[in-house]
Every structure is written in C-alpha cells, then in structure tokens.
C-alpha cells in the first residue's frame, strides 16, 4: 500500500500541495481528480521522488519510501518523452535495464508488451517515425515493462484513441487485480467513474474528498424527480424540500429535511396519479464541481 501523509510543497509564496493525505490500496484503481493547478502532478512527482518534499511523507509497505522502491514503480510523467531518434525496442530495453532488469528478460518483456499494444512490427523503427498515438503507447509500455510494484500514471488516457483507451483500462485493471496499487490522474470524469474503485479529489492543493464513487455520491444532495398528471407548482409550498426546477407536470426537488420526500410522495398521491418518483443520482461531475467549489 502506498500512503501519502501530509504532503506539502511550496513554490515561492504559493503552496501547490497543502497537507495532502490519502492511500493507494493494493488491488484498487485509485483515480486522482482535480482541475488544472490543483496539485495532482506535483503530488505524483513527490511520490516518485523527482521533486523535493517540504513536509509530510510517502510511505510504501508501512515504511518511508526509498529510491529503491521508487525504482520499481511504474511512472508516466505528465509531459511525455522518450528518445525521439532511438529505435523503439532499444530504448524500451534501455529503460527496463535502468530499472534493474537483465538484458534478455528486458528484451523479452519489451517485445511482449509491444505485441500487446499492436506495435510489434514497429519495434525497430525510430520513435519519431511513429504517430503521436503510437508514441503514447510506447510510453505506456515504458511504464509497465519492468513489472512495476506500483503504478503512478499522470493522465495516462490523454491522447489515446478509443481502442487504446480500452487497452489501457484493461492493463490498469489487470495490474490492480494482480495486487498492484494503481494511482492515475485524469480529466475524463466519466472514465474515472467507470474505472475507479476509489477517488481522490484535489482542489487548490488540498484533498477535498476521498472515497468510492457511491460514497462520494452520498455526499451530494438527495434529489427526486417527480412527474404527475397535473401541474407541480404546489410543491413550492411543501416544507422540508427545495424545488430546484419546475416544468408543468415535472419537477426536481431536493430533500432538505430527512423524510420530507415521503411527505411529497403522499401529497402527490393524494392529488392524483404519480407517473414517476425517482431518486436522482448525481453524476460524479456534479459532485466534483460541488466539492471543488467549496
């Protein structure tokens, strides 16, 4: 398990990351969400040891993380980069060897991963001869090649076509299933919602919410969609609810006092036919906007 405890990093007068704590558990996909400048990249760089820490600690397997631990992590920096003029297979082998793999097994693993990402026939080409999407795939391979003990991926889905997104998602799930803690950041909230077991929401350098998708939704406002035969204007007079929207026979109400939705339901039934009475699950995007704005 990767534990981030009270991480803080200042750049001059601004505090980019402010007392950030969360866990990346084994076997779980943890999504790291936040707007531009929220501190995701800074946090990930501190976790990987390429940026100094002003306060706090990164812990791995219950003790402070060491460079030897970080060496075995798989990392994809926000700004992609490999050697443009070197051949794909050669530089993958080189990077794997830097992480301690033997030549033969590095070569074998590189070929295997290239095959998986449909790049087996491009192995001997120079990186710059590949399309940007394919370069991105090589970048993913570079992060996975050495059989990482943890994955820290900054925006791994950006720049991928839908097929590659699926492949990437499969890869992440497989690693999680094999017991590897996976932390990745993304702007694509629908993707995060679909994939992640846990979410960490960051805003202005602080953690504003942690939990699985359902837990986070539970933090959102409880709303009901009411569809009647007649006009729903009367809902405005019901105590304990807040009417978000009214459009003829359709209304969206937010429950302010616990149990007030039952009052609404009884009243509606008394007035005529109730066509629809459904709890509205807030989209993760809404939750995100809500907590990020707070």
């Amino acid at each position: 398990m990767l534990e981030i405890e009270g991480l803080t990093r200042r750049f001059g007068d601004t505090t980019a990351v402010d007392d950030v704590s969360f866990e990346v558990r084994e076997g779980m996909l943890t999504g790291f969400v936040g707007g531009n400048g929220a501190g995701k990249t800074t946090t990930m760089r501190m976790v990987m040891g390429v940026l100094g820490i002003d306060a706090g600690e990164v812990r791995w397997a219950g003790r402070p993380v060491t460079p030897q631990d970080q060496r075995r992590f798989g990392y994809m920096p926000e700004e992609r980069g490999l050697y443009p003029k070197q051949r794909v297979l050669d530089q993958l082998v080189y990077l794997a060897r830097l992480r301690g793999m033997a030549d033969a097994s590095a070569r074998e693993a590189a070929e295997r991963h290239l095959e998986r990402f449909g790049l087996a026939d491009r192995a001997t080409e120079r990186l710059q001869a590949l399309s940007l999407g394919n370069q991105q795939r090589v970048q993913i391979v570079a992060a996975l090649l050495h059989g990482p003990t943890a994955l820290v991926l900054d925006e791994p889905f950006s720049g991928l076509d839908p097929v590659a997104v699926d492949a990437m998602a499969d890869v992440l799930r497989e690693h999680a299933a094999a017991g590897v803690p996976v932390l990745f950041s993304s702007h694509q909230l629908d993707l995060v919602e679909r994939l992640c077991d846990r979410l960490v929401i960051l805003a202005a350098g602080r953690v504003v919410a942690v939990g699985d998708a359902d837990e986070l939704r539970a933090r959102g406002p409880l709303r009901y969609r009411v569809v009647l035969d007649a006009d729903t204007g009367w809902l405005r007079d019901v105590r304990g609810v807040h009417v978000v929207d009214v459009d003829g026979p359709t209304a969206l109400v937010e429950v302010v006092d616990d149990g007030a939705e039952q009052v609404v339901l009884r009243e509606a039934a008394a007035r005529g036919t109730v066509r629809e009475f459904t709890p509205v699950r807030p989209a993760l995007a809404d939750i995100y906007r809500e907590v990020a704005a707070r």
Partner: peptide
C-alpha cells in the same frame, strides 16, 4: 501480456 509482478531477473543495482 500485462504481466504485473516482479521483474524476472535483477540485471544490476542502481
């Protein structure tokens, strides 16, 4: 394929 898990051989220290 995805092969999570430790690298098969240690080719050298940092």
């Amino acid at each position: 394929t995805g092969a999570p898990g430790p690298a098969t051989a240690d080719g050298g220290s940092a």
